[in-house]
């Protein structure tokens, strides 16, 4: 038989429908035989009903609903669990493509936690996509965006802006850039869209601010690339000439296409022996 003390301890859980099995049976039995406890139970139920009535139930403002509807509808297609296996296959293929096309000499792979640089790049990419990081300079001209960053970031950054020859197709377009806070100092955030509208972004800092590390390591010439997954995004980080770079993209963007941002010019493709034209992203 449940004592009055035990009954009162279980009172709230019983009113909230959280008691089960023997506890519930013993509780009900005690309530049936103890007038004082039954009265307490009634009071507790009455308070629960009052709480349900009294607690505010505001609805989301219309503006927020519109924005969230747009965010959900316009977000790029995802690496859902149902196709995670397919994505990893595609990612593996992309890595192979990189290795073959760019003649990458892979060092022994080692993995580690995402670096601060990779995390900052993924965070900035997501915040940009959700509208929280509006661009401060909007232009498809690398020269113009480069000019805008001059004097605003504590390093010199030159964005590539290759001409497209007759019959050539540009694989991406520059949207613009903005400043972001990376470890207490300014970094350059540059947004692109690939020709299939998938977003890709580049975060640039000085090596003194952030250094690439962690993830799967791949070497090409003097450069070392770190590829890692952060918050569902693919982030490739590397450093070159005193600057650290982080390229963040939706997971369905193939690695070789990410590289087209900087290495998409006909000269670049000719210069890098064996570079093959990437196939458009297939159904992933």
């Amino acid at each position: 038989m449940t004592s009055c003390e035990v009954f009162r301890r279980l009172l709230g859980a019983a009113v909230d429908g959280e008691l089960q099995g023997d506890d519930a049976t013993a509780f009900d039995a005690h309530a049936a035989g103890c007038i004082a406890c039954r009265r307490l139970l009634e009071e507790e139920r009455a308070l629960a009903r009052e709480l349900e009535r009294a607690l505010p139930r505001p609805q989301a403002p219309a503006g927020l609903r519109e924005r969230m509807t747009a965010l959900l509808e316009e977000a790029p297609l995802p690496p859902r669990a149902a196709r995670a296996r397919t994505w990893w296959a595609a990612a593996a293929a992309a890595v192979v493509l990189l290795a073959v096309a760019l003649q990458l000499a892979r060092s022994p792979a080692r993995s580690g936690p995402p670096s601060g640089l990779a995390t900052a790049a993924a965070d900035a990419h997501l915040r940009f996509l959700s509208g929280q990081l509006p661009l401060e300079v909007g232009s498809s001209s690398g020269e113009e965006v480069t000019r805008w960053f001059q004097g605003r970031v504590p390093f010199h950054l030159t964005l590539p802006d290759y001409p497209v020859g007759p019959g050539e197709r540009k694989f991406y377009r520059l949207l613009g850039g903005r400043l972001v806070n990376v470890g207490g100092d300014y970094g350059a955030f540059v947004a692109y869209r690939l020709d299939d509208e998938r977003p890709i972004s580049l975060l640039v800092t000085s090596v003194g601010q952030q250094r690439p590390s962690g993830g799967e390591v791949t070497s090409f010439g003097n450069l070392t690339f770190h590829q890692q997954s952060v918050n569902g995004l693919k982030v490739i980080t590397w450093s070159d000439n005193g600057l650290s770079y982080a390229l963040a993209s939706d997971l369905t963007v193939q690695g070789a296409r990410s590289c087209m941002v900087c290495h998409g010019s006909p000269e670049e493709r000719r210069r890098i022996e064996g570079f093959t034209e990437p196939t458009p992203p297939g159904p992933i």
């Binding site: 965010l71 859902r80 996509l129 918050n231």
Partner: peptide
């Protein structure tokens, strides 16, 4: 808004 952005990114 941040919740939905993160949920979308992690929906796998």
């Amino acid at each position: 808004q941040e919740t939905y952005a993160r949920a979308l990114a992690a929906r796998h």
